[in-house]
Each structure stands twice: as structure tokens, then as C-alpha cells.
Write a protein that binds this DNA or RNA. Structure first.
Lengths: 267, 267
DNA sequence: CCATATTGTTCACAGATCGAACAAGGAAAT
DNA sequence: ATTTCCTTGTTCGATCTGTGAACAATATGG
């Protein structure tokens, strides 16, 4: 079928004009601070009538504000709110990738770092390809059930009560609570309490029959951002045996990674 | 003439659908972190075909990125870059409003705080209404020429060489260099050097024949953000006389205001 | 291997977005 | 005080854009 000119090698889509202009306007507002509509028209080249419509839309969404005294326009803090947490995801993934590699070289067993995304634990970094005892290669992007995996339980156990409630609400809203999960939900707080007393989360034969895992949460400062696991053959040892040998190096690895993340996000 | 339903009392514009959807997508990406296109469609209710086009546009503008491994989408740091300085404008104006009021109660002469906006010094806060010797009431939004006013010269004198060049380039680009300015430009660096040696900026009979002013810059940390002046009757004293009595309290007022701003922006 | 789910793309059409033109108000000059 | 010029805010028909149902391709799970 016929294709039309693309803006990027391989992409068939044109840029959406109104959206592009909206961001041109926001960038101009960022450059200029408080600016009159006529000034914005001169600076961006966008017709004044179009600007009035764009400004109205961005006002309704809360990203721009107009000063009553002279009609000047400025960005609001909502842009910053939108960006909250952005930097940290990238830094965390980068730091954890390196940290997991080191851990796996030390222990042989592979590890994954996952964050809660769209009601699932999504693997963001993984050391399986560095482990001599793993057959998995591409795990990044794969998901684990929040309520039944070691990764999910470790993460949930690091949330405050309020954040735990909100997280479960989001999961219900977007439909990631499975039938197996429904059996677990009534007891989730007790299971998390048991996990606190034990000192780690675990699962047995969840994703694959012969694979078990233990996991600990990861924080940025005091804020939980995800969890790290160690996966091992069920036949090789029990979770308790895994914990007795691997928990200490896992915890130490996480502490060093958390410090590195904190250093980088405050630069 | 016939009007149509408005989204806000008194506003005749409908929201631009594509722009609204683009921000719904960004907000969803902010909520979810790395998310697949199908997940974003479920979360936002926007058709997948539409999302592909929006994502493409936002990728081209640099606000979203797609992960090659599984096509997941995430916000980028550019949102934060867009928002740089947002919070500070509001805080600075609020703090300076209170500070200028105190200064005017102490000195009687009115003051203005201005920032560089769209190639002009725009008055963001003013104490004229608290001064018994001013006839002006509404100055916020009014502008002063950058190259000839005390406010403008104080601000320019606090910029690094690189920022000074960039600022003059922006002014040329958006056409705020007047004919009077053109006579000054060749000597601007010498005038700023003389100002440094004098310790303050001044103007005589600029906006009104009978009004002179002296001014000092205002910084947030090390970053120049604007300037504050003291306006007085030309017949009452010369700039040098004004400086001998008013410069010390003006400087002290600015130091206190800068400290208050720094404290607030680091909360 | 097959069925199902998911991803990515297309294109006719409904309707959204655009900007020239107009109306109103404010500022500056006389 | 009046006139002229500039700026702001709004309108609406025409043009073009953005949309989503449908299709093709790929990936996943049984």
C-alpha cells in the first residue's frame, strides 16, 4: 500500500499539528516567563486566534495560567508534578542493572529488578544472561503477579498502609487482579506481616514449576520504588536455605545500589 | 452573535481534543511509568490507533520515549526541563511583594521588582501603592526598556558574559531593541563595567521626566532572576544622593528576600 | 501446529482546527 | 476632550486534520 513521507525513518505517522503547537507554546512560556498573547504570537509564529484556543485548553488542563491584571500567561507547577519521578526510573534501572550483574557474578543465581507498573511488577533490569544457571535471556518487560510473586510481595510490604490501599485500588480499577489473586486478597495484610517477621518475601514454583525466588524491596531515600529477587532451582534448595546464604549479599547489594541512586538523583 | 456552550463561564472556546488527549496520555505515563500501548489505551480510554499517533508526536518533541525491547512508553526528563524555573517565578514575586512593602514603609520612596520577559523588564511586584510620594497605582505588567532603565541595567550587569550575549540575541530576535537602544548597544559592556564600579544602576527621567531611579540585581542562589529599583523625584535628589541614603537599606532588603526565596524553593 | 492475543498500520470520512476579518477597548498623540 | 493607532478578544466558513474500524503481521500460549 502507498506510504507517505515520514518524519522519522521507519515511522508512518505525521506529527499532530495541534499537539506540536501546544508544546511550542509551553516551551515559549518556559523561555519567556510571564508573556502577553501578542508576545507569544511573535515568539512562536502561531496565529493569535490559534493561541487563544491553545491557551484555553492548557488552562483547563492546569498547565498554564493567565494573570487577570494584563492577560499575561505563564506555566504552572503542574508541569513539575507531571514530571515527578521521571528521572528516578531511568537512574534506578541503570544502577540496578550494574548492581544485579555484580550480585550474579558473586552468587551464580540470576536476579531481577522490578517496579510496579500498570498494576503489575514489570521487570526493568535483569542479570539472567550473566548467570550460568539460567536459560532465560530476555526478561525485561516481562511481568510478575503483584500479589503472589516474591517481587510483588517484597514491594507491597514496603508501602505505607495508605499507599498499599491505593495500590490495590489501582489494580482493581485496571483489572490486574486475577482469580488466584482474589483468594489471597483477604489475607494480604497478614501475609505481609509474616513476611516482615521472616525478613524476606518468597515464592515457590510460581512462573515455572522448578523455579523459586526470594526478594527484598528497593527504596530511593524512604520511598519504595521496586524490589529485587534472586531466582533458584527449587530442587537445589528451599527458600529458607536460599535466605541463609543469599540474603546478606542481596541486602548489601541493595544498600550500595540505593546509595548510588540517591547520589545520582541529587546531582 | 450566537454563542456556543463554553467549558468555563465566559469563555467561548472548546478544548482542543488532540491537545487534551496528549496531556491525558502524558498524565497516564506519569501515573504508570513504563507502560505498553495497550495498557495506556485501557487506562486512558483512547483508541490505540490514536495513541500511536500521539506517542509519535510526543516522541518527536522529546517528551516520551519508547523502549526498543517491548515497545513500552515512558516520560522523559524534558518535562522537568520545561518546568525549570516555574516555581521560582511565583515564589520570587510573592517574596518581593512583601519585601518591597517593608522597604517603602522604611524609605517612603516606591520600589519595583522586575524580571526579564520577552525581551523587556516586566514589573512583577511593586510598592507604589504603599508610598505617600507616588501617584502610580497599577504598575504590575508594565515594562521598562532593558538597555536604558535602572532595572534593566542592574539585571544585565548580573549576567555572565554568555548569558548577556544570549539575552541580547533574544532581544534582537523578538524585536525589542528600539532605535534609542541601538545607540547604546556598542557601549553596553563599558556601561556595565562602570556600573559595577559604581555599585548600582541608575536612570534619570526615563519613563517620566521628573522621575529617576537606582537599582540592584536580585539572585536566587547564584542565578540572576531580576532587579529591584527605588524611584524618586529628580528634583528631590540626584542618583548619587539617593545611593548614599538608600543603597544600604535596599541591599539589605534584597539579601533578606533572597534568603527567604532560597528557603522556600528548597522546601 | 493452531488459536488467540497483541502490536502496528491504513485511509475514507466526520468534524475539528485554522486564520482572516471584525468588534471592542485601551493607550498615545494632538 | 477627541482622534488615531494599537492591542486584545471573538467569530465562523473553509480547508484540512485527526479519528477509529478494519486489516495485516507478529508474538504468545496451549
Amino acid at each position: 500500500m502507498a506510504s507517505h513521507p515520514t518524519n522519522e525513518i521507519g515511522s508512518p505517522y505525521k506529527e499532530i499539528r495541534a499537539v506540536t503547537r501546544a508544546f511550542d507554546l509551553l516551551e515559549a512560556a518556559g523561555d519567556l516567563g510571564w508573556a502577553k498573547v501578542g508576545e507569544l504570537a511573535t515568539y512562536t509564529g502561531i496565529d493569535r486566534g490559534t493561541l487563544y484556543r491553545l491557551i484555553h485548553t492548557l488552562e483547563m488542563k492546569g498547565y498554564l495560567v493567565r494573570r487577570a491584571e494584563d492577560g499575561a500567561v505563564s506555566l504552572t507547577e503542574r508541569i513539575l508534578q507531571l514530571g515527578d519521578g521521571v528521572r528516578h526510573e531511568d537512574v534506578a534501572t541503570q544502577v540496578m542493572s550494574q548492581a544485579l550483574r555484580g550480585l550474579t557474578e558473586q552468587l551464580m543465581w540470576p536476579s531481577d529488578f522490578a517496579t510496579l507498573v500498570a498494576g503489575r511488577m514489570v521487570i526493568q533490569a535483569s542479570s539472567h544472561k550473566f548467570s550460568p544457571v539460567s536459560v532465560h535471556r530476555r526478561l525485561v518487560g516481562k511481568t510478575r503477579p503483584v500479589l503472589r510473586s516474591a517481587l510483588g510481595l517484597a514491594y507491597l510490604g514496603s508501602l505505607s498502609r495508605g499507599d498499599l490501599s491505593r495500590t490495590l485500588d489501582v489494580m482493581r480499577r485496571i483489572g490486574t487482579v486475577s482469580r488466584e489473586d482474589l483468594a489471597i486478597l483477604p489475607n494480604i495484610e497478614r501475609r505481609l506481616e509474616e513476611m516482615h517477621q521472616r525478613g524476606y518475601a518468597f515464592s515457590v514454583g510460581l512462573v515455572e514449576n522448578n523455579i523459586s525466588a526470594i526478594a527484598l524491596p528497593v527504596r530511593l531515600g524512604r520511598r519504595p520504588i521496586g524490589a529485587v529477587n534472586i531466582a533458584f532451582f527449587r530442587s537445589a534448595m528451599s527458600p529458607a536455605e536460599a535466605a541463609s546464604t543469599c540474603l546478606k549479599p542481596l541486602r548489601e547489594c541493595i544498600v550500595r545500589a540505593e546509595a548510588a541512586m540517591l547520589a545520582q538523583t541529587q546531582l
